[in-house]
Design a protein around this nucleic acid. Structure first.
Lengths: 218, 218
DNA sequence: CTGATGCAGTTTGCTTGCAATCCGGCGGCG
DNA sequence: CGCCGCCGGATTGCAAGCAAACTGCATCAG
């Protein structure tokens, strides 16, 4: 049995709880078979990571409107760019080989968006680690946790998976060559494309979603 | 009476608890006149902000060694630079006037390092807000909280206060003129000087500190 | 004399129960 | 007819107590 924190996080990540939902301590406690205290602690931790936000006295799952999305991508681009630059300078040969291997392996699952999304998270995390800056790793963790609030992965978009892997490969090559400017440029382009894809997906689905309860209140 | 969280934070910030100290729930509970539950919650929140870290089963106040210091300043420089750039683009005239006023007022306390340190934090926070990016504000909050673990402020160094205010003024001017490149450059120089000052102070005091219990174990 | 083992004290993690607060509906009054 | 205030349920915040885990010490066996 895992702890309340991980249980709640994965419930959010798998979409059991959705942005805007209200989380009631006693409900969660019963659902997970623990008492309210560990649930409370988990909720407060999630609140400080701003996956939850207060609504009056109770907690709801944070929602991302268009502006927040843009702000989040801005911060993410900057931090990831820094990570790429540092990784190009600091990554050890072993780390570089691991990154290369990850890209190669991911070719096999290029048509499974769910698996690819997980692999994608692992890949980026590995890049973060290669920066050898633990604060950067921590901050990027936070950013990615907020990104988990976005329902769909952009990797489900037609053709995006293959392109994303090419971009990953380019990044690994840049890191391997120790060219920090190229690594940064490569990563910025990757993030930028991801954002663009997300905006397109968002636009494509405009109006066709049934009540999600979060952004169609009129 | 404030809540346990703020009480603990200010105890750390004022140096009542020092890096490396072990925090025992029951002690804190008694000291603050509350039960262990709110203390626990506060401690866990501080842990997720990495002001505390686990040492075995219990929590100690996080320490910053030289490497961590460098890593922290690296991340900070990047995020603050982004904030400066965005502030130059997005700050409203009112916000700019407030920033100018803050610098002007701070001239009066240039010789009171404690007050100046507080004013400095307020000033930077105001710059962050002027970026109009709430994720950036949040991330920079985190960075500054980790910086609170450093005992002394660099503003106590001889002459640093006055120079720092000049740098603040330069930043405000750049933001006011809407020149994002200049604002970024100006802020990077400011951070860089602060870091340099800190390293000098650190070097100056090498060997003269009695057992702090954290970095002189032999 | 050294190392292992068990015991006691300390501290954390969790449960349970209680008090305070907030939200919604309902009735009274203007 | 509408607005205000009150009451009941629901939910959070806090407190106290209990069980389990770890630490350090002492004792005993080899």
């Amino acid at each position: 049995m895992k702890d309340a924190y991980s249980l709640i996080v994965s419930a959010i990540e798998t979409g059991v709880f959705r942005p805007g939902d209200r989380l009631v301590e006693s409900e969660l406690a019963e659902r997970f078979g623990v008492s309210r205290t560990p649930v409370r602690e988990a909720l407060q931790r999630l609140e400080t990571q701003s996956m939850l936000k207060r609504d009056g006295r109770s907690l709801i799952i944070a929602t991302l409107d268009h502006n927040q999305l843009a702000e989040l991508y801005t911060v993410r681009a900057e931090l990831e760019a820094l990570a790429a630059r540092l990784a190009a300078r600091n990554a050890s040969p072993e780390e570089i080989r691991v990154l290369g291997a990850m890209v190669a392996e991911d070719q096999a699952i290029v048509n499974d968006p769910q698996a690819l999304a997980r692999a994608n998270r692992r890949f980026h995390h590995q890049v973060h680690l290669a920066s050898h800056n633990r604060y950067l790793v921590q901050q990027l963790d936070l950013v990615h946790r907020s990104m988990a609030l976005m329902a769909r992965t952009t990797l489900a978009a037609k053709g995006r998976g293959a392109v994303a892997l090419e971009e990953h490969q380019a990044l690994v090559d840049a890191i391997a060559s120790g060219d920090s400017a190229l690594a940064e440029q490569s990563l910025r382009r990757h993030i930028s494309n991801a954002f663009e894809t997300r905006l397109k997906e968002e636009a494509r689905q405009f109006g066709e979603q049934p009540a999600t309860g979060i952004d169609n209140e009129l």
